[in-house]
Design a protein around this nucleic acid. Structure first.
Lengths: 219, 219, 219, 219
DNA sequence: GATGAATGAGATTTCATTCAT
DNA sequence: TATGAATGAAATCTCATTCAT
């Protein structure tokens, strides 16, 4: 294990592996924040470390004190984002076909929308075919898979208990694992469109409609 | 020589703006093809002109004889892709809620899927927030908008003539312009997932399900 | 990455716009010096950034840390040169037609000769019709105009107070603004010829003659 | 002599070495003309063969049928220019200090001015320290030397026969070879300034003054 | 902890010249 | 004679990363 050998010097490695004092934590936070901003503005690929350190009002050298490279910063942000999504998934209760289900789903959709709006740049990198690092890819896939499966579970649970439409004869069933993926896709894409339009004035109305469509699409 | 000259030059301009003979057209086609391949494999940002000319079995200088830079090649491919999409839209007939409508929609969905599979790399750049060039952005937005609106029209037309479920009292209507966008999103995202899974064996089955979901989602 | 960003970057900007520490100032000076040398040896157009950094014993990247390109370095040198010329103009006292005037003029001519010898490569670019950058052109024209007009003033002043030959009837007067330009031209061209002959042995004698010719030409 | 060996193929060598038919002569003339224009507009160094062939409405390949390279074209133009200057020198009669001398000189100055205006781009390359080719350098130096010496001769001759001011005691003599060089410099520089000002309206008046100054400067 | 300076590999781009028809 | 196409060496420039203080 090289870790043993390199452990001699603690600098130059991601912040998470070192104990930071108050000042160090502030610097680290500033860099993360600046990174997210710059990635959002320019996109991950076009963003330069130069831009980030300038935004964070710090120096080049300092950057590499906290992150081993640009991708490492991306990964740190991705972890943040995955955490948010996990929290979202955990908070989602059963989604029934009635008004209560709508309210439940609506809160979740809004949360997803806000997270996406914030971490859009990171998520967009996750979507890329050729990711710089497999670990990052795994993290993205995993976060989405978990979200989708949770959504699937909560809705299936809701159907069981709720005001169920039943499985009328002749009704065609789509593959169970496909539905949540597609529903999530709708949410995701909707969010993308809305966000790219600069969070329109009728945001609330749009979120209502979206929630409705997801709910209807499932049941 | 740094002197940037505004002069009209016949070389170094996109292939489309010059008259090409047979040989030139072949080279141009080879570069476009190589570009699409390399973009697909490495992603647009990571792709180097170097890779492209190597794949096209031509020289570095030749590349710049046909395209003014990497982005220009992307744009040419984007134009191709937009053309394909326009063709798809034009070919779509009215989509009724019955089996005939399903068949119609299914053909369209499959066409979209194939186009997406082919031009995925280009489309993924379109999805980026910060595009290298506004003209490219406009083209992407426009292509998708047109596709969505055509889809909306054909389905609305289909509803009017078809085996209509009616507008029962209490049924909430989502914004008319939102529906096709979301449906298209589903198709797009589905395609993305399927394609990223390397065109799975049950592709046909999946396309059926997707078509069903879109059809059901609308009516 | 082709994406041209308008962002304010601290690096890659001319040295003059950034605060530099001792080390940076040394590097900058080394580059300026190397630039002047290489421009003199090869000529501005043939000079490559490569040659300059090699002469300055620094790296390619470092060059672009201090100057945005070759032309930017030229401009910095041009500013230096223009400053020298301004100083020359400021130091010139009234030029009378007598021996005192000759001494005054002789000192000035020698100063110009030395400046020209040093900055010849830069000045020669100024003389080009098609300058890479209008700002550079303006600077050159301005520096020469100022020099010429100062020369004109000092000699006119000298004529008024000095051992004046008067304005005999029949004596044709040339345009007041033309004379200094042409006199300056003589100095400049003389310097050019002398310098291009590698500073001949009888430099002193030549400078005497030149001074005399200028003085005689005016009065 | 390699000439013997290469003589097998006549193409790819300067036009002057081959017999040309009417069509070939036209093409050659078009290229020379285009070359002079483009060199004037962009300067020799910045001028691209591309620009020249476009201006001459011919192709890249054709260019190399008539000139072995860009410099060869420059040399051809330089020969033209040197010829013009030789003709000027030959036409100059004795320059006396009187009105007849003024008229003689004035005609010569005007001729020089026109030639300079036309071949300025070529002449400016001659002035460069580091010429691409020694033969070109020799030609430039030679043309100017001849012009200067002829001027010197004609004026010395004029002094001998004309309304001579004599060699009064105390009159300082400048080096005999320096005077014509400087006078020529004045003409040259004047021409440069005038030409760079786009041939001003008072061109005639300026030429009168210049002639006067040269005449006065010598006698 | 922090920073300005330096680095150099690698990417893009240009353009004089040659080739094949 | 003419030409469009191809070439590739050479030049420019960028930017992630390391260094020295």
């Amino acid at each position: 294990m090289t870790q043993q050998v390199e452990a001699v010097r603690s600098s130059g490695r991601p912040a998470s592996e070192r104990k930071l004092r108050a000042r160090g934590r502030r610097t680290s936070a500033r860099l993360l924040d600046a990174g997210l901003r710059v990635f959002s503005e320019r996109g991950y690929h076009a963003a330069r470390v130069d831009d980030i350190v300038e935004r964070a009002a710090t120096s080049h050298g300092t950057f590499y004190l906290y992150f081993s490279n640009k991708e490492d910063l991306l990964q740190a942000l991705a972890r943040e984002c995955a955490g948010e999504m996990q929290r979202l998934a955990d908070e989602l209760g059963d989604v029934t076909p009635d008004a209560a289900g709508h309210a439940e789903l609506r809160a979740w959709v809004e949360g997803f929308y806000l997270t996406y709006t914030r971490y859009g740049a990171v998520i967009r990198v996750w979507m890329e075919e050729q990711l710089p690092d497999p670990e990052l890819a795994r993290m993205g896939t995993e976060a989405f898979r978990r979200l989708a499966s949770t959504l699937g579970e909560r809705m299936t649970a809701g159907r069981a208990t709720g005001d169920e439409p039943g499985d009328e004869p002749g009704r065609v069933r789509v593959r169970a694992d496909l539905a949540p993926v597609l529903l999530l896709a709708m949410v995701e894409r909707f969010t993308y469109f809305a966000a790219s339009r600069g969070r329109p004035a009728d945001e609330d109305r749009l979120l209502d409609d979206l929630t409705l469509l997801v709910q209807r699409g499932f049941f």
